[in-house]
Write a protein that binds this DNA or RNA. Sequence first.
DNA 1: GAGTGGTCTAGACCACATT
DNA 2: ATGTGGTCTAGACCACTCA
Lengths: 246, 246
Amino acid sequence: MPTPPYRRIADDLRRRILDGDLPPGAVVPSENVLVEQYEVAAETARRALAVLAAEGLTEARRGSGTRVRSFRPILRQAGRRLSAEQWGSGRSVWQADLDQRPMAVDSASVDQRPCPGRIAGALGLEEGAPVWVRDRRYLVEGAPVMLATSYLPAEMVAGSAITRLDSGPGGTYARLAELGWAPTDFREQVRVRMPLPEEALALALGAGTPVVLIARFAFARDGVPVEVNEMTLDASRYLMEWEFPA
Amino acid sequence: MPTPPYRRIADDLRRRILDGDLPPGAVVPSENVLVEQYEVAAETARRALAVLAAEGLTEARRGSGTRVRSFRPILRQAGRRLSAEQWGSGRSVWQADLDQRPMAVDSASVDQRPCPGRIAGALGLEEGAPVWVRDRRYLVEGAPVMLATSYLPAEMVAGSAITRLDSGPGGTYARLAELGWAPTDFREQVRVRMPLPEEALALALGAGTPVVLIARFAFARDGVPVEVNEMTLDASRYLMEWEFPA
DNA sequence: GAGTGGTCTAGACCACATT
DNA sequence: ATGTGGTCTAGACCACTCA
């Protein structure tokens, strides 16, 4: 039971990628080349390349070729507590160009709808109670990176700018504060899995790219839940950070 | 350019899984069955099943069959702030049996080593300065779920139980507190990607299972970094939670 | 032993990008 | 026009599980 040829080929290529022999953007040897070099059938060479694609290491383009993917993560900071100096010692262990690129919204909608069951429990509402639903897709450099759907009790936010596409300066949380429901605490629950086809489509995900699901709960004074925000992130584009006290 | 047969088959099966028609643990139609039902070649049927496996939805076992995977996550809580009542309204949107199963450690080592470059910066040390390195693998119900490697400045922890396999009651942080370096703040940086073969091996990962990489930085008073902990989690087994103030 | 998934081959046709 | 990746087929052999 020696490792099968397609795995050996994949292992070779992977090592070359991780060693930097094939840097980000470099063209990976084509199927035909692999067929010659390793003396295997075309399908076997394809399978080797498919392994790397499934690992998120490469990206194949029909007609062009297969290239090594590059990673330029967006830094998502939550619960920032520490000062800039403390950021200095204690910075990322991942060497990343954490440039702050501007984020845009390309498709958005705001609707009042009956509350879905799983959200109702979190908001302390009955299933089907009216909630305002804010739906958005975020882009960086023209490419989608995150989907977000936010739920707020209709009774709480009726008449405010939260029910309009443009929620105004400071956004939803600023409006909540004006209504006397300023968020004081947040809980974020995080799951990770491979995307469903619809998610892969909406985020234009390459093969081998997981998604991060974040459910964010915002609480006002006395622990009153005021918002649930379900987010879906392209995992290959994010470096997430949380800070909290001991 | 209609969707190719293998995708149609995969779509059919995926819908049946997500609809609950094929519940967790259920046997997915075998290659032979699919060959008959859809009148395709065996390789085409295989490819359809491979899609589902790559999505983490199924698990194939040679000789046995392909089954729908089940999701029984471990809840990992960080920065717990809110009370139990607030947990009540605002609970998970993912219906999950969050039983607290006991966690064991099966392989552990403690060594003094020169500090790797990427850790040195975070700990405010020179590269190569002596650090104690605590290495562990965690199991739940006999299966590995997390790898963790912790780095502490040798000068800070020399002579304490931190340098021994059994760090004593309360663990590393309790010992740090006794030494006058009680952690007061934490920063956790999180990345997600598909595993390298070595990681897949160490965590016994099925196909289509991402890993979560958490780099945890512990700070004592005045923002002095006292520990860096690099963790690798089986993404399919964790539900992570962070809480923090506005 | 029958059925299951895992791998490989040789050959074919297609869609697409680059030259 | 050539080369690239994407898909499909028919047939083969193997390793494993389960009854």
